Simulated scan of single mutants.
Amino acid sequence: MPVNRNALIRYKTIDACLRNRRRRWTLADLIEKVSDTLYDYEGMEKGISRRTIQADIQMMRSDKLGYNAPIIIVEKKYYMYEDPDYSITNIPLSDADLTRMTEAVEVLKQFKGFTHFEHLNGVVQKLEGHVYASGHDKQTIIDFEKNENLKGLEHLNTIYEAIVNGMVLEISYQSFKALEPTPLDLHGWWLKEFKNRWFVVGAKGRNEEPTTLALDRIVAVKANKEKLYYPNESDYTPQTYYQHVIGPTVMKLRPNRVRIAVTGEHVPYVATKPLHPSQRIIEMAQDRMIIELLVITNLELEREILGFGNGMEVLEPARLRNRIAEKTRKAADLYSTE
């Protein structure tokens, strides 16, 4: 059964009201709330009739749309959900929905071998997991790494929409070293994810060098469509910008040839999961491997190396070797006994 936009807005508004159990909702209250919402979203000034809302409630109670909403009336006056955890947004997928989603997954899987559609791989796997879980009434069999409590995730949608629609971002930004946040305008170009942390890359003005801001250090952000937005007119793309780095930190330095000896149990891990796309194996033995990277030596590279502990030794360049050696000595001092 096709449902028009206004009807969907009414259903969602009634649903939001009935989920709010801190207030008791009469039919008049629901009519007023739905009328206000339609005015805000659609500019409709004409009030909603009593009959319309009553018909909406009956439709939500029925299985015509798959809602089967447990709407009851208490004290012959107040409407509420009998199940306090119910919402029309939580209804399970129907068999028809599962069939269509399964077909969609099969179509998307056809693109997984093409390099132009490599970004679809994660989407396809997530859809496959969701369809399997819904169809078998089980937990998903694919669990992706995530950190839902990470600070700054609430800004993702605002920043994404601003980039897509070409709007200037007005940001209040406070670095870890700053005592107070600083206001700035950013013309966002793209979003970057690294180890579950998100960053926005753009420029503070026309013809300026790219700036990278961490979302977990953004105090507040809003999009301003009145200000003139400067799109990315440089030669930078995410692919070229991060070509010689690990992580989001890009400095205007020449990449270095970094040679690292990998030993012991870490050899197969580094061989099968390279530190960087430029990684080449120079020497290979049973329990020792020497790799070469063409990268800019930044903090993220150092953290990757230090994360392997005594399983990695930087051979060159000397400056990076000395930095890793110094940090390793300081770490060892933390565990030394008097």
Results as ranks from 00 to 15, higher is better:
Val3Phe: 03
Asn4Gln: 13
Asn4Phe: 10
Arg5Tyr: 14
Ile9Thr: 13
Arg10Pro: 10
Tyr11Glu: 09
Lys12Gly: 01
Ala16Pro: 06
Ala16Met: 13
Asn20Ile: 04
Leu30Ala: 04
Ser35Arg: 05
Asp40Val: 14
Asp40Leu: 15
Tyr41Asn: 06
Met44Arg: 09
Arg51Glu: 10
Ile53Asp: 05
Gln54Gly: 15
Met59His: 01
Lys64Ala: 10
Gly66Met: 03
Ala69Glu: 14
Pro70Asn: 06
Lys77Ser: 08
Tyr79Glu: 08
Ile91Glu: 02
Leu93Glu: 00
Ala96Pro: 02
Arg100Ala: 09
Val107Gly: 00
Leu108Gln: 09
Leu108Asp: 10
Lys112His: 11
Phe114Lys: 11
Glu118His: 13
His119Leu: 05
Asn121Ser: 12
Val124Arg: 11
Ala133Asn: 07
Asp137Arg: 12
Thr140Asn: 01
Phe144Ile: 02
Lys146Ile: 06
Lys151Ala: 13
Leu156Ile: 10
Tyr160Thr: 06
Glu161Tyr: 10
Ala162Gly: 04
Ile163Trp: 06
Asn165Glu: 15
Gly166Met: 08
Ser172Gly: 02
Tyr173Pro: 07
Gln174Ser: 07
Ser175Tyr: 04
Ser175Cys: 06
Ala178Tyr: 06
Leu184His: 08
His187Val: 02
Trp190Ser: 04
Leu191Phe: 08
Leu191Gln: 06
Glu193Phe: 10
Trp198Glu: 03
Gly202Asp: 13
Ala203Phe: 04
Glu209Asn: 15
Thr211Lys: 12
Leu213Trp: 05
Leu215Asp: 00
Ala223Asn: 07
Glu226Lys: 15
Lys227Ala: 13
Tyr230Glu: 11
Asp235Pro: 02
Asp235Arg: 12
Tyr236Cys: 09
Pro238Arg: 07
Gln239Arg: 08
Tyr241Thr: 04
Gln243Pro: 01
His244Ile: 04
Met251Lys: 11
Met251Pro: 01
Lys252Met: 00
Lys252Ser: 09
Arg254Cys: 10
Pro255Asp: 00
Val262Ala: 00
Gly264Leu: 11
His266Asp: 14
Thr272Glu: 14
Ser278Thr: 15
Arg280Tyr: 00
Ile281Lys: 08
Ala285Arg: 11
Gln286Val: 11
Asp287Leu: 05
Asp287Gln: 11
Ile290Lys: 14
Asn298Thr: 04
Leu299Tyr: 09
Glu300Asn: 10
Glu302Ala: 03
Ile305Phe: 14
Leu306Lys: 03
Phe308His: 13
Gly311Pro: 12
Pro317Asp: 06
Arg319Gly: 08
Arg319Ile: 11
Leu320Glu: 03
Arg329Asp: 12
Arg329Cys: 13
Asp333Asn: 14
Tyr335Gly: 07
Ser336Leu: 15
